[in-house]
Amino acid sequence: MTGSLIIQQPGHSVVTDLGRFRGPRFGLPVNGALDQFSARAANILTANEENAPLLEVTALDFRMRATTDILIAVTGAPLTLTVGGRECPQWEPVSVRAGETVALRQITGGLRAYVAVHGSVEAPILLGSCAPDTVIGFGLRLSQGTELKTSRSVGPIRQPYFDLPLFRLGLSRPEFSSHAVIDVTDGPDVDEFGDTAELLFNTEYTVSARSNHIGLRLGGALPERQSTAEVLSRGVPVGAIEVPSREELLVLHRGRGVTAGYPVLAVVTSRSLDVLAQARPGHTITFRKTTVPEATAKYRAALRDLENLRSTVGTVFSLLGIGNQPGWPKLAPAAGS
């Protein structure tokens, strides 16, 4: 049964997914959920495709009302989640009854929360992704009264005994702290910074309030480029650390312009980009050097945790008779049918 979510208090929220991976070749940033692990987890906890559209709520309080019974999961930064006034756990599936209000309040410790809805929500698509692109003005930014269509309804599931938490699915959640250690690998232009490159690893940096989805600006001792030769524009990866001015270090995130002419000192690992997505202005950061093979291994370990979660969710949901098994609707009809 289709229904809708009606946004009552948007705060700063958008509908997004894992990103526009075909964008960079056309000069569009990949964008998408800045904390990819939390976004994937939210979709898995609601038995969605990992890349299904979901809500990204940044920093400010958020409220919405459901018109049908639905199943949601809220991940990302720690916050107070209430459904119809009851306090509910994050990182677990949560039932919402028709007419109830879902409220996310006091996002603390981190910056971004993710709300996935079983069956997902409808959003416009560009190059295979609904991720908003602020440069070309594409995407669904939520405002008061926005109505999001949902495609599946799930009857209420309540633990019959004392309202104990219904699920304990056992995903190890990321840690949130006001000080983050960020793994980086040497950038392709590290040599251009000579000995000053070491400053990156001996300095505590502070996240500036001017940080956003395009990049984080960090204050602290700055490595300095030793040459002044003009650099031709070239593609820069998400996670690139540059020193464009004498004031701040710039760490590019998923909204970054695809090409630039600054040398790349270091590159933040895919796992640590999720951690940076949760860094608030005023939080402090130190960098730790790693290698590409180690970074790849850590990334794959996180994916395995998510895969385990998917299989647990699949088992529990099929016992409860919720939705379809993930993957079933995509099966092609049998030959001759």
């Binding site: 991976f21 075909r22 960079p24 070749r25 990949v30 031709l232 524009s233 070239r234 593609g235 820069v236 990866p237 695809v258 090409t259 895919s270 590409v292 093979p293 970074a295 790849t296 990334y299 794959r300 994916l303």
Partner: peptide, 22 residues
Amino acid sequence: HGAVPTYDSLLVEFDPGVTSAR
């Protein structure tokens, strides 16, 4: 995922969960 060519350089982007730099 794709490649971004400019003047003398090309950035090749990939998913490290599926493939690797090597």
